[in-house]
Amino acid sequence: MRTHSERYFPYVLILPSVIGTFLLIVFPLVYSFFLSLTSFHLLKAQSLRFVGFQNFWEVLHDPAFWVALKNSLLFMVVVVNVELVLGLLVALLLNRASGGQGILRTLFMIPMMFPPILVGLQFRWFFNDQFGLLNNILLSLGIIDRPIGWLVRTKTAMPAVMFADIWQNTPFTAVVFLAGLLSLPVEPLEAALVDGASPWQRFRYVILPMLRPLIFIAMTIRSLDAGRKAFDLIMLMTGGGPAYATEILGTYTFRRAIVDYQFAYGAAISFIDMVLTVGFAVYLYRQLLKGRT
């Protein structure tokens, strides 16, 4: 009897989380996959017909989808890389600060604490053509003579949104790297110092290799997160415009599924998005494991 209950006890313990996972993740996933194989439109009666992979075929032939995918990749590559480099610089500087490190660290973390929706609003006004801070400064310094529509030019809208994202998320990478720097063993650094290594050599050949696992972790988290968090920023700052210039997969899915009520089409886009994201996550995870060995 005892062995019997012992055998089943672990299963009983994990049962609640299995049920939770099933209800909150597996079921919606299966259901939305089922939806993506239909022609379901929320406002059309009897639209729940099985159409096979037609939605997927249409998504793959939809120019707006490819623009959104390209923008999502561009956004992710630029913001993640800039945030990593800036975060590392900030962490190195903070690590060397002789006094007030606690206050500085807290100050640097403030942008991270804002919800993205507030950051979006803040930068919508910051870049506003008539009332924005940026144009105001440039006009009063005489650098420009008429306001620039930062958020409505195809060439500046994406950089403006990226700027907002970098402002908000660099503190995250900085905090991760700072934690790493503070926990590094001192012996290798002292040995390098004794051997006469220059500051650059110490950074390049001692600190950086030791930080590598952390860099991969920060990169993985931010890469997977970049597109998700940018949704709020983009909806508030540009709404995906002008002319798709800042449309990413998240905003495009929202437009098709929620604004146009094309649930099936939206489900197909999110499924493609999910497959790409999972593939990317697996790749990053493998790189992370490689980095550790």
């Binding site: 059309k44 995906g240 415009g241 002008p242 002319a243």
Partner: peptide, 21 residues
């Protein structure tokens, strides 16, 4: 027509392309 909202979503970015570019 029931598709009006969908039509709006599809054409405004195109109209903007002429406006901004």
């Amino acid at each position: 027509i029931p598709e009006y909202q969908e039509i709006v979503s599809a054409i405004w970015p195109e109209l903007q392309k002429s406006l901004v570019e």
